[in-house]
C-alpha cells in the first residue's frame, strides 16, 4: 500500500488559517459518538449551517444572497457529510474533523474521517463513478437500482448535492497509521449557485 496521499476530483489545498477568508471554522468530534447518538449529525449540520449562513451579507456575487437558502443548502450538505462519517468510519482512529472556509464568492467545506484500508477500493470505485458520469443520469439510474436492491453507500447523497445543488467534490486518501486511512472529503459551492 502506498503511503502517499491520493487525490480525486475537485481537490484544493485550503489554507490552514483564516487568511483571505470571510471566516474559517473548525470542529473535532468522534465518529462513534455520531453513530451512537445519530441526531448529533443533524444537530451539528444545522448548527454549522445556521452559523455559516450569518455571513451571507458578506458574500459578493452582485446580488443579495438569501440567508435561508444558504442555511438550507448547508444543512443538507453537512448532514450528508456527517452522516457518512458516522456510517462509514472504521479502524482504530475515530476522529472526525469539520472545517469550513468562506470566501466572498464561494464556500469550501472539508470533513475528515478514518476508514479501514480494506474499505478504500470500494469507496474509490464509487468516487470514480460519481466523477466520471453525468450526475443527472447517474442519480436516476441509482434510484432505479436501489428500488430493486438495497445498496448501502450508493452515493445518492453526493449525487443529490452534485445534481440539485451544483456542489463539486474532492477526495483525499492518506494512510495515517496501521489499519487506518484518513479520508478528507471537500465540498465546494459557488455562492452564485444558491
Amino acid at each position: 500500500m502506498t503511503k502517499e496521499a491520493k487525490i480525486y476530483g475537485n481537490w484544493e489545498d485550503l489554507p490552514a488559517s483564516a487568511g483571505g477568508t470571510i471566516s474559517h471554522s473548525r470542529m473535532e468530534t468522534d465518529s462513534r459518538q455520531l453513530a451512537e447518538y445519530w441526531r448529533r449529525c443533524s444537530l451539528s449540520s444545522d448548527f454549522w449551517a445556521r452559523y455559516t449562513a450569518l455571513s451571507s451579507p458578506e458574500f459578493s456575487v452582485g446580488r443579495p444572497v438569501r440567508r435561508d437558502a444558504v442555511e438550507s443548502t448547508l444543512s443538507y450538505l453537512l448532514n450528508e457529510l456527517f452522516e457518512n462519517t458516522a456510517k462509514f468510519s472504521g479502524g482504530p482512529v475515530a476522529a472526525v474533523v469539520y472545517e469550513s472556509w468562506l470566501f466572498p464568492d464561494r464556500m469550501a467545506f472539508q470533513v475528515t474521517n478514518h476508514i479501514e484500508p480494506a474499505r478504500r477500493d470500494g469507496f474509490v470505485q464509487l468516487i470514480e463513478e460519481l466523477l466520471g458520469n453525468d450526475p443527472d443520469e447517474l442519480y436516476f439510474k441509482r434510484l432505479e437500482e436501489n428500488a430493486e436492491t438495497d445498496q448501502k453507500g450508493s452515493g445518492l447523497g453526493y449525487l443529490t448535492l452534485m445534481k440539485d445543488y451544483k456542489v463539486r467534490f474532492g477526495f483525499r486518501f492518506t494512510p495515517v497509521a496501521e489499519g487506518s486511512i484518513a479520508v478528507d472529503v471537500q465540498a465546494h459551492i459557488h455562492v452564485k449557485e444558491i
Binding site: 443538507y76 434510484l143 432505479e144 436501489n146 428500488a147 450508493s154 445518492l156 447523497g157
Partner: peptide, 15 residues
C-alpha cells in the same frame, strides 16, 4: 428536511 436515505425511500415508493 429529509436526508438522502429518506429521498431514496420516497423514490423507491414512487417507483
Amino acid at each position: 428536511f429529509l436526508n438522502s436515505s429518506g429521498i431514496n425511500a420516497i423514490s423507491k415508493f414512487v417507483i
